[in-house]
């Protein structure tokens, strides 16, 4: 049997995305988020996950998509990236899939308005196209962005 990657898939707008299962800690329902002032727009705030503070990123805002109000299917995917634990808000979480390596193609320049920096490729499963995200870039890019955007002093 050929090699495959195991990904958890979720929806954001009309697209389906996948994240390597090894980067996922757990998937939880939407909870109350404490806002943190003076952070970029996509930084939703922090949540209390069993006594641990987890920063939450709104993936829609991160990718410059239109924001929507949380629905019943909104989920927070808690990810472990390196030593950092970060939650990302998605429209809905769907399933865990095995995608054979040969079914993964290199991402085109831009896909769904997202730069290739954040993409690992596009997986084909039947007639579904699953955009494979590189969360490391999504998060570290967020940090860089934050440094540029947040003014160091007020007024």
């Amino acid at each position: 049997m050929s090699e495959s990657v195991q990904v958890a898939t979720f929806h954001l707008g009309s697209e389906e995305y996948g994240v390597d299962i090894s980067q996922i800690q757990e998937i939880i329902r939407m909870v109350e988020i404490t806002r943190v002032p003076r952070t970029p727009d996509f930084m939703e705030g922090v949540i209390n996950l069993r006594g641990q503070l987890i920063p939450i990123i709104d993936l829609r805002a991160r990718f410059g998509m239109e924001r929507i109000s949380p629905t019943k299917s909104t989920r927070i995917i808690v990810t472990d990236i390196g030593t950092k634990r970060v939650g990302i808000i998605v429209d809905s979480a769907s399933e865990v899939l095995h995608i054979p390596i040969e079914a993964i193609e290199q991402a085109p320049e831009m896909i769904a308005g997202i730069a290739t920096d954040y993409l690992q490729g596009v997986g084909k499963v039947g007639d579904r196209l699953i955009i494979l995200l590189d969360l490391t870039m999504v998060i570290s890019g967020a940090q860089r962005h934050e440094l540029e955007e947040t003014p160091l002093v007020s007024s």
Binding site: T39, M43, V46, N48, P55, L147
Partner: peptide, 21 residues
């Protein structure tokens, strides 16, 4: 978390007895 970054005027956070932050 350093993902949130350093915010002028905020030195950290705490979890209260109610679970609120």
């Amino acid at each position: 978390s350093d993902v949130v970054g350093r915010i002028p005027g905020i030195s950290g956070a705490t979890i209260l007895g109610s679970g609120a932050i």
